[in-house]
Simulated assay, not measured.
Amino acid sequence: MDVHVQGPGPTAPFLSARDRFETEHDLTLPVEIQLRDDPDERTWAGHYDDHHVLNISRQAASSAMAPELVLHEFAHMARYEQEHPSHTQSTEEVLYLALAGKSVERRKLTHCYQIANHMKDIYADDITLSVGPGKKLLSFLESSLAAAVADRPGTPPRPGLERISPGADPEITAVNAAFALALAERHDLVDDGHRLYDIAHAAAMDAPEVPFGEFNRRFRELARDPDTSSYRQVLVEATRSYVGGVESAAD
């Protein structure tokens, strides 16, 4: 597995993640690491005919989560090379199938893309968590979700959750909570008393129009090896469920 870091910056997280990844998996195509100056640049992978590109900020590459972030992106690359339906299915096609004839505001369309990304992440992290422990990932999910729940606009901070930004959208926060809890449950990272349950419950209460339990089940029970047709149908159903639930509550 060839990994090439482009530009000045730390190399240890990439090599560490590569070594861990190679204990169970491999990539056919080489990986170019592009270190970005923008600290807000999200970590993401690009796929080309003859290589993959991992884009990451220097700040993220120097963080305590760097090896896990890199490992997660390697897992996405593996799913792409496997031609896994979650990584080959066009989200635009799914939205057309699910929402034909509907008028949907841009905010909700953005949320639908997020739902599709969560499903991709579930399948990537099935690989990520097969080669490493999930403790750091669980802490990351817990802290990120707690911050979003605390950021509900127009409400005072919840006890123990300090508000840190102008406001997170409660509807997609509920979906994000369903995803985080489903991922943890899928890989047995939490017991019944874990704080993630309390945070997820708060997120669900903030957006009663979102079918939290349904999304939690959908994410948790995604088939390990779906065919293209069944995966497309699951994503179409999730899209319709989200848009239908939110629109019904707004009527």
Rank of each mutant, 00 (worst) to 15 (best):
E185Y: 05
F21K: 12
Q233G: 03
R195N: 07
P157Q: 10
E221R: 14
E105G: 07
R158Y: 06
L35A: 11
D151C: 15
A203D: 11
P156V: 08
I56W: 02
L196V: 09
D38C: 07
K102V: 01
Y80W: 10
L235Q: 14
A147L: 11
D121A: 11
P39R: 07
Y123V: 03
C112K: 00
A223D: 15
S62E: 12
S86Q: 03
A223W: 01
R158T: 02
L137M: 12
T88L: 10
R36Y: 01
D169C: 09
P13T: 12
S90F: 04
D169A: 11
A202E: 14
D121E: 14
E162A: 13
H87I: 02
P8V: 10
Q59N: 00
A202Q: 14
L54F: 04
N117M: 03
C112Y: 00
V31E: 11
S86V: 09
A182H: 10
T88V: 15
N55L: 03
E93C: 01
V246S: 09
V70E: 06
A250V: 09
V53T: 11
L95Y: 03
D49G: 05
T239W: 06
E214K: 14
D40I: 07
L97H: 04
H25C: 10
A12T: 14
T155G: 01
D2C: 00
T88N: 05
